[in-house]
């Protein structure tokens, strides 16, 4: 390898490593904090590596009043959101991907605009409506606004996924004796499944991470982020650190599985190719 090329490559790796460290070090630090004994959190100067690995901080967090309950709520809300979003969004994504019909472009534009809209703010008027409907302070209520937030993404992602399944395959199945629905179930669905799973995970993460609407729409049935946010001022630092780390774990885990589909979500244009 020639000298300039070697230099260029070295510089590339140095740059990439620097960015990677910038991303990873804070995650690493919060992880360390969560396994530092609570009293050492306040030590001065605090050693980067704690004197001993301790589960006390994590245990304190999980045993704190309301945490396990809100964790359960968070998971339920995220699962409900996932179910609502896919049930409502996937058919629309399929329609946009498969058919050309009057109003198709208008619908797509509408979806793209709602994707950019600060939907979480709609929790404020929804709180008033939900009180009337009996949905205030319920998990379904939170899941509904989370669905409103995730829906544009779900439609865009599923459109991309179904566009990736050639129309010919379904038509072939139809000439071989399937009904339209049968062709979808036997051919399009199995081929779209990995993508749909990624869309589901993405939806889950949106709901799991959302805090503004969840806080506005609940009082007793808090989700985990809502619980942490509303108790933050009264909580010790180690509680906050453990909470921050705990909320991060599933996100990192899911990111690993949806990494191939990341560009469908925001890079809408890629999905349209």
């Amino acid at each position: 390898m020639s000298y300039p090329r070697l230099l260029r490559r070295t510089l590339l790796y140095i740059g990439a490593t620097a960015f990677a460290l910038w991303v990873l070090i804070p995650i690493f630090l919060i992880a360390i904090s969560s396994f530092t004994p609570p009293n050492e959190i306040y030590a001065w100067p605090k050693p980067i590596i704690p004197s001993r690995f301790s589960l006390d901080t994590m245990r304190f967090f999980l045993n704190s009043y309301g945490v396990l309950n809100s964790l359960r709520n968070s998971i339920l809300v995220a699962l409900l959101t996932l179910a609502f979003t896919l049930a409502v969004g996937a058919p629309a994504g399929y329609a946009v991907a498969r058919f050309s019909f009057r109003g198709r472009e208008a619908f797509r534009l509408g979806i793209l605009i709602t994707r950019m809209f600060p939907t979480a703010l709609l929790a404020v008027p929804l709180a008033v409506t939900f009180i009337k409907w009996g949905l205030y302070d319920t998990l379904i209520g939170v899941a509904l606004i989370h669905t409103a937030m995730a829906l544009p993404f779900a439609v865009i992602i599923t459109t991309g996924i179904f566009m990736g399944v050639p129309k010919d395959l379904e038509e072939a199945a139809m000439t071989l004796g399937c009904s339209r629905f049968g062709a979808f179930v036997r051919v399009a669905l199995p081929l779209a499944l990995p993508g749909l799973a990624a869309a589901a995970m993405f939806t889950f993460v949106i709901s799991w991470n959302e805090v503004f609407a969840a806080t506005i729409l609940t009082v007793n049935n808090r989700t985990l982020p809502a619980h942490i946010l509303t108790t933050i001022q009264a909580s010790p630092l180690y509680f906050r650190f453990a909470g921050g780390f705990f909320m991060t774990i599933p996100a990192l885990f899911f990111m690993f599985f949806i990494r191939r589909y990341l560009f469908h979500m925001w890079g809408g244009a890629t999905a349209e190719r």
Binding site: E171, M174, T175, L176, G177
Partner: peptide
């Protein structure tokens, strides 16, 4: 299509 007694070969093979 399923009730027409036809079979089809597609350009993309499908």
């Amino acid at each position: 299509p399923s009730k027409r007694g036809i079979a089809m070969v597609f350009q993309s093979y499908a």
